[in-house]
Computed example of a mutant assay.
Amino acid sequence: MSDMPAVPRSEGLRWLYLHGFASGPDSTKGVAVSRHFGARGVEVARLNLRVPTMEGLRLSAMLETVREAMGGEKERAVLLGSSLGGLVAAHTAAADARVSGLVLLAPAFQVVRQLRRRMGEAAWRLWEKQGWIETDDFAEKRKVRVHSGFIGDAEAVDGKFGGWPDVRVPTLVIHGRADDTCDIRYSRQWAEGKRNVKLVEVEDGHELVASLPRILAEAEEFLRPWGV
């Protein structure tokens, strides 16, 4: 923590939780985070990033939703993001000086590359050709067809800085070594050599549910300078 940049204390600091792909504001991690910090007098708003719709999901629309939720120019925010929400949080921090700190849970760095690897070339080409791909909607417990426009939009957004958001604020990254959705090596690569980034590796998969007590303890300690 001694290597971290100084954290300016701010009245009216906004705390926002950003869920992942095919998830929602009422995810297990989001609810656990808001309850934990709520018991300590900190209100964490859980944003809905299923925008503009789940079927028409766009990374650029997620970024705009977060920017609007941060309020006016003089507001400051702490962003806590999971998976794709972690990537959104990092990109927001790289572009918006109102973000003063980040907690990223299994962030989806290099999202298009990771999606393509996980899906396989045949499924990837099918997604591009037919214009949609069916996937699980974990928030609404149903199947959903996500439009292929997500690909080009994500490539345009994530292509900035070569797909590595240039974050300068204090950042805590927690990632599972057994994550088969968002490979931990990308978090390692992004965090390497950054004095403002603390990477905590846990023995867990992508969902990180088994690591929730550790996540909450690490996040609380890390965010103490912000008034927790």
Rank of each mutant, 00 (worst) to 15 (best):
L126T: 10
D153H: 13
E201W: 08
E221L: 09
A108Y: 03
R195V: 01
V202C: 03
S100E: 14
A139N: 09
V78N: 05
S82Q: 02
G163R: 12
A61P: 13
G162K: 06
R125Y: 08
L84V: 03
A69K: 03
T28I: 11
E221M: 05
E201A: 03
V51W: 09
N196D: 11
Q114D: 08
V51E: 06
I174P: 06
L63H: 05
I151K: 12
V144G: 14
L172D: 11
V42C: 01
L115Q: 12
F161C: 10
K160Y: 01
E73T: 03
A154F: 07
G101P: 00
L172H: 00
V42I: 07
F222K: 03
E55V: 00
G120C: 07
R125Q: 13
L216F: 04
I184F: 04
A95F: 05
A89M: 12
A106N: 13
L49Y: 00
R50E: 02
L80D: 00
A61K: 01
V197R: 02
L208N: 11
I133W: 01
L87W: 00
F161G: 04
G85F: 09
A69S: 11
S2I: 06
L172I: 13
A106V: 05
V209L: 04
S60R: 15
Y186V: 02
L79E: 00
T171C: 09
L13F: 05
S82I: 15
A90T: 10
K141P: 13
A123R: 12
S60P: 04
M1T: 15
A178M: 10
S148T: 08
E140H: 13
S83K: 00
F161K: 12
E73N: 05
R177K: 11
D158G: 05
G81H: 13
E140R: 07
C182W: 01
R14N: 01
S10Y: 12
A108M: 14
G71M: 09
L47W: 08
A219E: 08
L115R: 10
G38R: 15
G227W: 03
K129V: 06
A210M: 15
A108P: 02
H206A: 06
R76Q: 05
V202F: 09
